[in-house]
Amino acid sequence: MEFLQPVMLWGLLALALPVIIHFWYQNKGVTLDWAATRWLTGITNQQQRGLRPDELLLLLLRCLLVVFLVLLLSKPMADFLKLNQKKHIVHLVQPDSKLVSNFRFELEDALKKGEKVYWAAPSGSEAKDLSDLPKVAHSELYLQKNINRLSKPETELHLYVVNQNKLTNLPRFDVPQDFKLHALTDTIIEELPKVIGLNGKKMTVLIDYRDASESRTVEAALDALAEVYGISFAKDISFDPKTKYDWILTDQKITNYYAHTLYVISDNTISQVLPENVVQFPDSLLLRTSEIVQNGALPEWLGAAMISHLKLDIREIPLSRSQLETLFVRSKPLDRRSADQLYQYLLLLFMVTLLAERWIALKKTAARDYA
């Protein structure tokens, strides 16, 4: 059994209250002497000796009321309400010819067993014939939508995905149930991506910042970019009019403009109209002020600007098994049916216990008043 509000279980400490109140009232009373006291002393002592059964029952019922109230507030979820549910296997496949060809045996076997196979498409159509692949552009965009649609407590989801780098550009995929991940290749890839289009050319870069720490930050980002993409940079820290720069990174206004050069300006105070080859960063590139620098995303941001400006391409490197597993995460679902059913049972027990406690308490009070 699990609880959505486990902190409310501290309320079980309140079990001590009915016990304390019970024994408090056992000792409560004031002794008054009157003429016939000596004739009633023996009878009273005999009647009050020990705990009477109705008092023990009242104490037990009041303790149960506290327990049921705490359980109701803690919102329990119990798996025993769905133990008898049979798991049904459902397959969700990206409509890619290589992927389907690689897992054709498994998917055809699933269809023979009567298991459902669906395409990761906008409509989420069911696959009747594996040779009839729907034409879907960017099918990875429809994975989460179909995962949410097919996720049920009684199903086990099998995901067949193309392990491409474009998956990393999307938010992580939350799968609210048991699932198995099948990818085109499960080998560990150690090769780094390479930029296609430079043909071994060394890029000349000018790093011109008034703050030395900002210059060091940008230089470190370019070093990381060179290591990841295999690009060579020739870096200058002062402007040379004889040099034809491919890339200028600065926090100052452009005085020497070249149409072929990519400019990255990290100063949001510059309000001039900027050409297409000028990219303005929203703030400075200092570690203490820039969130993108603090998150370590500056090399990636600079690389995207460079690739877009030079119209380069990156050789596609398949994701490894470990990389894919970080993108698909098993999230804990809230099974509303089992939670609501258990809540109703607890509420019923609480009401029955409350009625029983009130009935016995009133009956005891009436008997004492008419005694």
Rank of each mutant, 00 (worst) to 15 (best):
Q5P: 01
A16C: 12
P18N: 09
P18G: 07
I20Y: 11
W24D: 02
W34A: 11
L58K: 05
L60T: 11
V67G: 03
M77N: 12
N84D: 15
K86T: 15
H91M: 06
N102W: 00
E115T: 05
W119M: 07
S123L: 13
S125H: 00
A127E: 04
L130V: 03
L130I: 03
L130R: 02
L133Y: 01
I147W: 01
S151Q: 09
E154K: 07
K166W: 01
D174T: 10
K202A: 15
D211F: 05
S213C: 05
R216V: 10
R216N: 12
E219F: 12
E219P: 03
V228P: 00
G230C: 05
F233Q: 01
A234S: 09
K235Q: 07
D236R: 03
I237N: 13
D246M: 00
L249H: 06
K253M: 08
I254L: 11
A259S: 14
H260Y: 01
T261R: 02
L262Q: 06
N268V: 02
N268P: 14
Q280I: 07
L285S: 08
P299Q: 04
M306I: 15
I307K: 09
L310M: 12
D313S: 15
L327F: 09
V329P: 02
K364N: 13
K364T: 14
R368F: 12
